[in-house]
Write a protein that binds this DNA or RNA. Sequence first.
DNA 1: CCGTATCCGAGGTGATACTG
DNA 2: CAGTATCACCTCGGATACGG
Lengths: 140, 140
Amino acid sequence: MNKKNTPCCGVARFLTLLDGPWATLIVRELLHFGPRRFTQLRQALPGISAHTLTHRLKGFERHGLVTRTAYAETPPRVVYELTPLGEGLRDVLEAMRKWGDAVPDADPEEMTNLHTADAADFGTSAECPYSQLSKGAPKR
Amino acid sequence: MNKKNTPCCGVARFLTLLDGPWATLIVRELLHFGPRRFTQLRQALPGISAHTLTHRLKGFERHGLVTRTAYAETPPRVVYELTPLGEGLRDVLEAMRKWGDAVPDADPEEMTNLHTADAADFGTSAECPYSQLSKGAPKR
DNA sequence: CCGTATCCGAGGTGATACTG
DNA sequence: CAGTATCACCTCGGATACGG
């Protein structure tokens, strides 16, 4: 919009709002499945803790990326949903996915390549092995 | 123990390869300016330390995102350049920038220092205010 | 000039236990 | 079910000092 040389601001803003390893993946879930409950997100993101999920979600809500709707029922039910702003992340996520899929296996020795199918989507959430990247586990 | 397990979905892969707040910004510099020397990058990213820059750069090199070319001169000269793979990140960065620009300033209190320089001019993207948001940056 | 080595703080994350 | 609180760990990042 303004000068062509200002990617700095937009990029930095994205990085600020979606900091942390889990943030983007949570958004991916909501983009892919639509409104989701707390437990659903938790199950869809193997390895994430309630602590982290809560923290990220609250941050998103605070920044206007998602809405939180609590139903006073028994048992309680809370639904998180992307706002239009959060929906706007679809293009970014899509670009990421496209790039990531195109990445040749730079590290030859592994590649648990099982994501062959879901190119059209953001990937099947359930099989995201990102849990293995959790801080506690040595990843590289 | 393998160094890295490659996430099956592209999004996770991106997040794995470009982890940390500075990673994406370094790529942005290289995307924008092309091949750059160590010191140039350092200057272009106010607040980054040699330690971090080296670490990120080595990671990029290891994953095939950038190439490192050292000239045995005096004084020594080292040039980093994006590989085609790294170039492919342009779309992602662009998507981020586009989104970030469209984000309304929902958090004035958190972004305070962000606009100090304001839309003024990041003419060359040199002054990326992200340094003030970095983990260790004490500016706030 | 281009890093590397070491120390240190900050914050994300997980595990566990507990509340509404 | 949907969190919250606390603790501890890990990694990233900055600062400084040193080496190629």
